[in-house]
Amino acid sequence: MATITLDNIKKSFGKTDVIHGVSIDIEDGEFIVIVGPSGCGKSTLLRMVAGLETITGGEVQIGGTRVNETEPMDRDIAMVFQNYALYPHMSVFDNMAYGLKIAKTPKSEIAERVAVAAKMLQLEPYLTRRPRELSGGQRQRVAMGRAIVRKPKAFLFDEPLSNLDAKLRVQMRLEIKALQRELGITALYVTHDQVEAMTLADRMIVMNAGVADQIGAPLEVYANPLTEFVAGFIGSPATNFLPAAALPGTPASAARVGIRPEHAWLSTEGEARLTGTAVYSEALGAETLVHLRLPDGEMFTIRQDGARAQPAEHQTCHVAWDTDQQMEFDEAGRRI
């Protein structure tokens, strides 16, 4: 258990800058999710904390000590990989015990710690099996177990759930969260899935092309995105963006305006701020997503209650929203 500090971390591969300076102070026991589209540098950032990638600039501290030059094994962290990275020729027990064996932990203590972790993860019946004899979810648990038995200062997760099916992903998400709470170990978690980010994080780092666009609690990021990118990336379905010129009454400095689908509704002609043609509706049961085509050809999505009437195809629709909820961005994509 420890604090982690990233101080203006930079990474370049040759002349290409991948990460342009990320800073964050992570408190002891905090669950931080790094979220962003693929190629934004989120995995690289995590791997720099792990020590698997060299740090071009800035400083990483774990528990108050600079670890830039420290080998991964000496940073006292545990990592869970996307493909689990279990040792194929070792039993579940040996997979979990390997790190402890290298650390020359007494045998009785290894057995005890693995037993505790196995119980926590419901892996007890499988301790003698090889990884290939396990299902995806069980392998995922073994990878977790391998991290737990080490009692590390921090857990690092690199998209650990992306190889699981949707149902298992939801279940493991809850388990990871519960486990991290129970153990109180600081966690850094990389994902491209904003639902995972929203549900797991105490705070999240939204990465965009090597820059941390926003760092904050999930609901705060959702309610108050600082950039156009964050507004578009966090929230599902994605925010609608309109040119400010199309909307009367927006400030002169605004270039684009974002309206979340859940904040807009089909309205009467009188209160309408926009008019479009219904293209299709996706009825999901509890809610319906109505997709409209605006006169300029852009698409606009409205999320409405599943009980409300859906517009017929090609029907002309009027859209309104509360102007308090619209988000205005300047030319550079920054929130006004």
Partner: peptide
């Protein structure tokens, strides 16, 4: 997979240990 070597590194295996054990 590279991840296997990385997992071993995080687990504390020096290169020759990784070689013999894995």
């Amino acid at each position: 997979p590279d991840e296997l070597a990385e997992a071993a590194r995080v687990d504390g295996a020096r290169p020759m240990r990784f070689f013999w054990d894995i």
